[in-house]
Simulated assay, not measured.
Amino acid sequence: MEDGYPQLLETFLEDSERRLSQLHEAKDASELGMAAHSFKGSSSNMGAMGLAALCQQLEERVRQQPLYGIEDLINRIDKEYLEVQRFYRDERQRISAQ
């Protein structure tokens, strides 16, 4: 796994960008819920538990109508992802330097 770790980090970062786009481009609660669910799973698998928890909150929130106020939660996901992204990019560089 050690040799594949940098690729795993890169795949997660690329995949996360697509998942964020899906959150922002969702046209209805169903699409938003599916995007949040997928992002929650990948974040959890990578140990980004804060991000996974926010995605779970969004997944649960879209089941309630009306959808007012979800913008704040999506903004929180965006901010948390920036922290996760920074951490994993630093981690990728650290591993590459060894």
Rank of each mutant, 00 (worst) to 15 (best):
M46S: 07
R63Q: 15
Q57T: 04
S43T: 09
I74M: 10
S30L: 10
M49K: 14
L58T: 00
S30E: 11
A48R: 02
R63M: 13
I74C: 05
D28E: 07
M34P: 01
N45P: 02
M46V: 09
S43N: 09
S38M: 08
L73I: 10
S43P: 03
Y68A: 15
Q65L: 15
R61A: 13
D28A: 05
R76K: 13
L32A: 01
D28I: 03
A29Y: 04
K27W: 04
P66R: 12
F39Q: 01
L67M: 15
L67W: 14
S42A: 11
C55G: 01
E31T: 02
E31M: 08
K40A: 05
H37S: 08
I70H: 10
K40Y: 05
E71V: 11
M34N: 05
E71C: 11
K27A: 08
M49A: 12
G41L: 03
R61G: 04
F39S: 01
E59Q: 11
L67H: 15
A52M: 04
R63L: 13
Q64G: 12
A36E: 00
E59A: 06
Q64D: 15
L73G: 04
L73R: 02
R76P: 03
Q65F: 13
L67I: 14
L51C: 09
H37P: 04
M46T: 05
S43A: 14
L51E: 01
H37W: 04
G47S: 11
G69K: 12
A48F: 09
R63H: 12
L54W: 02
A52H: 01
C55W: 00
G69I: 11
A53Q: 09
M46I: 09
A29R: 06
D72L: 12
G50Y: 05
Q56R: 12
I70T: 12
A48V: 09
Q65G: 13
E59K: 06
H37T: 03
S44E: 11
A52G: 07
G69N: 13
S30G: 05
K40I: 06
M49E: 15
E31A: 07
A36Q: 01
Q64T: 15
C55H: 00
R61L: 10
R76Y: 01
N45A: 15
I74H: 02
A35D: 00
Y68N: 15
L58D: 02
R61D: 08
A35W: 01
H37R: 08
L73N: 03
E60D: 13
H37N: 09
N75E: 12
M49C: 10
G33I: 03
G33A: 06
A29W: 01
I70A: 10
E71F: 07
F39G: 00
Q56P: 04
R61K: 14
M49R: 13
A35M: 02
H37Q: 10
R76I: 03
C55E: 01
G47W: 06
R76V: 05
K27E: 09
M49L: 15
S42G: 09
L58W: 03
Q57Y: 02
R63K: 15
Y68M: 14
E31K: 04
N75R: 12
D72Q: 14
M34H: 06
G47T: 09
G33Y: 00
A36H: 04
S30I: 09
G33C: 06
S43D: 08
I74K: 04
C55S: 05
F39N: 01
E59C: 06
